[in-house]
Simulated scan of single mutants.
Amino acid sequence: MGLPSDQVAWHSHAMRRLLLSSLLCLWAAAAPAAEVTGAYSKFDPEKDCRLIEKGDQYVYAGTWACKGVGGVDIIVSESDDRGSAAFGKGKDAMKHCAMRKTFHPFNTPLSPVEWRIRNGKPFAAIERWSVSNPEGDGHSTWLVITAIKQGESCHAHYVAGSYPNANAVAREEADALAPDFDCMTDTPTVDSKIGPPPIDLISCMEMEKE
């Protein structure tokens, strides 16, 4: 005895939906991940950035918002000859974890910034910093990979400027680490042959406890 015609129709329709759903799942699994692209942004606080907080007469020079990409600005600050850099929107980014981190010796975040972008949105920034040698003359450089999140940015990885193929390594680490990096609980990592960078290798949560 066959199924009633209405049940046959429903059964046929359900099978088609099941088949279509299976094909879509297979297509999604086979589809490649969105391509990561790169872009560069130059900045000069004295020429093309907007002052968002004035300095004082002592050691704080001020904080500036510089144009970035994808609606994300470069926020740079200087105090006591030490820089800070975060990635977000105006004064809101001054609250980011990245803004509270800097190298212990005198230092300067350098232009340009290299952005790592997926689907038109930057998820990481790579910036070279010049860091003074506290034991003598000269300086070293470090590439800082900053993870960019919704309403937050934080240091995720450091690459010594002297490390072999430092720029390529920084891009690889940015693409691998930044998307899933948890700013509150994850600790930044390092690629270096000259020892650790002169900066606190702690999570944002640990910073808040200090």
Rank of each mutant, 00 (worst) to 15 (best):
T37P: 06
R100N: 10
E127Y: 02
D186Y: 07
N119T: 06
V169P: 02
G136Y: 08
I126A: 01
D80N: 15
P197G: 07
F181H: 02
A65P: 01
S203L: 05
D6P: 09
D73H: 09
A166V: 04
T187N: 07
C204G: 05
L110H: 00
M99C: 01
V190D: 05
D81I: 06
C66W: 01
V72H: 01
H11A: 15
V144A: 07
W142A: 03
N165C: 04
C66G: 05
L143T: 00
Y40W: 15
L3D: 12
G83S: 09
S162I: 06
S192N: 09
K91V: 11
V76R: 02
V144P: 00
K42F: 15
E152Q: 10
A168D: 14
Y40N: 11
K89S: 14
V144W: 00
A61N: 09
D92Q: 12
K95C: 07
A33T: 14
R128L: 10
I126Q: 00
A178V: 04
S203I: 05
R128G: 01
T189C: 03
P112E: 05
G161P: 03
D137G: 14
Y158E: 01
E206F: 01
D80K: 09
D175G: 05
L19C: 13
A34D: 13
P32Y: 04
H96W: 02
C25W: 15
D186Q: 09
L24M: 14
C183K: 02
E78I: 06
V76G: 02
A85V: 15
A28I: 13
S153D: 05
S192K: 07
S140E: 13
T146S: 10
R171K: 15
G136A: 10
N167E: 14
F181M: 08
C154G: 03
V59M: 10
S162N: 11
M184T: 10
M1R: 12
P196F: 12
V144C: 00
A86F: 03
S5Q: 13
K54S: 12
M15K: 14
R82E: 08
P179W: 08
V69Q: 07
D180L: 11
M15N: 13
A178W: 02
I199T: 08
W64I: 00
E206Q: 15
A39F: 10
A93T: 05
W10K: 15
S5R: 14
S140I: 07
P45T: 08
A147K: 02
K121E: 08
S130F: 04
P105L: 04
E78D: 10
D200R: 11
G88N: 03
W64L: 04
R118A: 09
D137L: 10
W27N: 08
C97Q: 04
E135V: 01
Y163M: 02
K42Q: 14
G38T: 13
S132K: 12
A31E: 12
S203H: 07
D191I: 01
G151S: 06
M94I: 07
Q150E: 15
V131G: 00
E210N: 14
G90L: 09
T63K: 05
C97L: 03
G88S: 06
S130G: 10
S132R: 11
K121L: 03
A147S: 14
L3W: 15
D180Y: 08
S41K: 03
A160W: 03
V59G: 03
L18M: 15
I52M: 06
D137M: 09
P112K: 02
H104F: 15
A176D: 04
K89G: 05
T141H: 12
R50L: 12
